[in-house]
Design a protein around this nucleic acid. Structure first.
Lengths: 181, 181
DNA sequence: ATCAAATTTCACTAATTACTGAACGTTCAT
DNA sequence: ATGAACGTTCAGTAATTAGTGAAATTTGAT
């Protein structure tokens, strides 16, 4: 393995825990991501010096995140894996999975908590704060969903505009209020 | 503790690991978040049945995330803590901290990897993919920075528009190209 | 049907992370 | 200065998570 690839893989191993995956999974992903061609489990285990079973688990997890795709070669029973290389696609997938795993459970907990009628002042305050949290998470969740539908170039254009969209917003605001008057 | 508050705290404990914090830290935050008034370490340790030292560590971590603020009461040496209750402020803080912890280290690794000249075809491909990743992360990073500067109402308006901003974008595109012709 | 090449499962060990209690340090009222 | 009330640090233990190797299972060619 070249030093360049090695440092990339090592970094993904180290960052893994911050990203909610473990070292192995991070490194397997990094390796697949930079490889010119799909890899099979044995090649991965060999390259990273992990046990075959560990690699098997790691691949399962990466598939559950939809970060790698299984491929088959004609006349070869082994499963090969590669990773989408389009960064926007990766971002979309990651956003969607995080929403599902990190936001949805909380959203449903909050929803049911907000159905209860508060029986004390303490509960009333608590519920009020939960409502604030719920509304924001729901808004972000819908927004994610919504933005996912945009194609990559539009999304990129939008992001590059950054806070300048505010100008645009002000403009439309004026148009609207102008048309009302 | 009321059942309502209890289930909220329990949920944050369980979700903690998915969010990159541990059970204790999640629960401490949840408790502070729903409390009508600031709490001191002893109250927290008592309520959640954690050791005083564990609470001390947890509070340090929450402070490092800027999710809780230290308060002082006149004539009381103890440190009290409360949490910002404005959901937008919380979101902003979280986005900023995540950018700093989860994106920046990778960005700087990628930056230096892209400075190397590839010595093989393998490296060339790897570097190409790294560039795609780098460019996206940088774009998102700048976008975060940018969007942070918007005030909460504008941000909310923008998110509620969701994918409908695309229409707006098309409109401006037309205006621009129209003015050129 | 049988075998060989794969993948997966699982019980076990290793490594890491979380948590505690005791010791230590600091601050402030007396 | 003394000591009580806090907050912090740290070494040790508990709990959790990661990783392994052997056994079990699946798959497909013969």
């Amino acid at each position: 393995m070249t030093p360049l690839v090695h440092s990339f893989i090592a970094h993904f191993g180290e960052m893994g825990s911050r990203w909610g995956i473990n070292r192995t999974v991070g490194q397997i992903y990094a390796l697949i991501f930079v490889s010119p061609q799909p890899l099979c489990a044995d090649e991965i285990a060999e390259t990273l010096s992990y046990s075959r079973s560990n690699v098997s688990m790691g691949l399962k997890e990466l598939q559950s995140w939809r970060l790698v795709r299984m491929k088959h070669k004609a006349g070869d029973r082994r499963e090969y894996f590669d990773a989408p290389s389009d960064a926007w696609e990766i971002f979309r997938t990651l956003a969607e999975e995080r929403r599902r795993r990190e936001m949805e459970p909380t959203l449903s907990m909050l929803r049911s908590a907000l159905l209860e009628s508060p029986t004390s002042e303490e509960d009333r305050v608590a519920q009020e704060r939960m409502r604030g949290m719920h509304d924001l998470i729901e808004l972000m969740s819908t927004w994610f969903d919504d933005v996912q539908r945009l194609d990559a170039p539009t999304l990129a254009k939008l992001m590059r505009m950054g806070s300048r969209v505010q100008k645009l917003l002000e403009l439309t605001g004026q148009l609207k209020s102008g048309s009302k008057e």
